[in-house]
């Protein structure tokens, strides 16, 4: 689509209003005449995004090139106004973050966390969706029960899990001890804590996957299965050659969404372990939050640097994703 304009569009900086710039006057007029309503329709979003995302983003990038912290930014306290006194330091912050092993440790764990969470969530969601995509008694009941983790606000569930996980007084360990197995240090041991946060995130994420994939399954025409059965295809062959291709589009979307959400999953880590024990469950976004709001003096420049780096990673991911979408013939 939009073949005749695609080159101009690709060169544009990423802002809808910039596109027409640089063309001949006549071209601009003609473009305005044909496209004015489309541009008018997208104007509110472009405007809002420009002001509340564009400007802070530019400022964030700028802050990452300074030594801004709580002590030297401008602030007003009652009658006193203190002027900003931070200065431009170039790429110093990036050198500092990238040469610090902490960044790489966080990155490795964040990637691991994302991959494990998304793949486990997807597998479980697919399995449950397949089970629910049949006719049997109690289906509605199971569906309602399984959707519950999604229906409860995330921060409530995370607190609930923290309560269950408490090593000394939580129900999980009381049950285990009752069963003769020793207490498990759910949130007290680096490895267990990693498993625990993954468990909770999977628990939170499965219903969404299940529901979305179930919708995908239901949109696959039943005749396909009947025809395959007639041809003597086994259950596995039917799954492999009809179900999976049929779910391709919806899977791509939910995996993309789930990856982004998990990569940026702040509440689970922050509310469950606060990045602990030690710093073993800290992911990139919680680390950036810590730099800006937990440590003191608050390191605004450092946090912005982390933010820019995280964004760069996600952009790379999105580029790869878009390329793979294009290969399948989806273009925009």
């Amino acid at each position: 689509m939009a073949v005749h304009t695609s080159r101009t569009a690709a060169q544009a900086a990423g802002d809808g209003t910039d596109v027409a710039r640089g063309r001949g006057r006549g071209g601009l007029k003609r473009a305005l005449a044909t496209h004015w309503y489309a541009w008018a329709m997208v104007a509110p979003v472009v405007l809002v995004l420009g002001v509340i995302i564009g400007w802070p983003l530019v400022r964030g990038v700028y802050l990452s090139l300074t030594d801004a912290n709580e002590r030297n930014v401008a602030r007003t306290i009652g009658a006193n106004t203190i002027e900003a006194s931070y200065s431009f330091v170039g790429l110093d912050n990036y050198t500092a973050v990238l040469s610090d092993p902490v960044f790489w440790q966080r990155l490795v764990w964040t990637v691991l966390w994302t991959v494990v969470c998304v793949s486990v969530t997807f597998t479980l969601g697919l399995a449950l969706a397949n089970m629910l995509n049949r006719n049997f008694r109690g289906r509605a009941f199971y569906r309602m029960a399984l959707i519950l983790p999604w229906a409860v606000p995330g921060f409530v569930s995370v607190f609930a899990w923290r309560f269950l996980f408490n090593r000394d007084n939580g129900i999980l360990n009381k049950v285990l001890e009752g069963g003769g197995i020793g207490a498990i240090p759910w949130l007290d041991d680096p490895t267990w804590a990693k498993l625990s946060v993954i468990t909770v995130n999977v628990w939170l994420g499965v219903p969404f996957m299940m529901v979305a994939l179930l919708g995908g399954l239901q949109s696959i025409p039943g005749e396909l299965y009947e025809a395959a059965e007639m041809d003597g295809a086994s259950a596995w062959q039917r799954f492999r050659h009809i179900t999976l291709p049929g779910l391709r589009a919806v899977s791509m979307t939910v995996i993309l969404l789930s990856t982004i959400w998990t990569f940026n999953m702040f509440p689970v880590i922050f509310l469950l372990t606060r990045g602990g024990p030690g710093d073993s469950t800290e992911i990139l976004v919680t680390q950036a939050f810590r730099e800006a709001f937990v440590s003191s003096p608050r390191d605004f420049a450092g946090s912005a640097t982390w933010g820019v780096l995280i964004l760069a990673l996600l952009m790379i991911f999105a580029l790869v994703y878009r390329r793979s979408l294009r290969k399948q013939g989806e273009v925009w």
Binding site: G276, P277, G278, S295, P297
Partner: peptide, 21 residues
Amino acid sequence: PENGSLFDPLKVEYTKAVTGA
């Protein structure tokens, strides 16, 4: 002024040491 800010990084290391990590 930095008094309060020392506890946070110290906590990370202290927890690691106490738990044997």
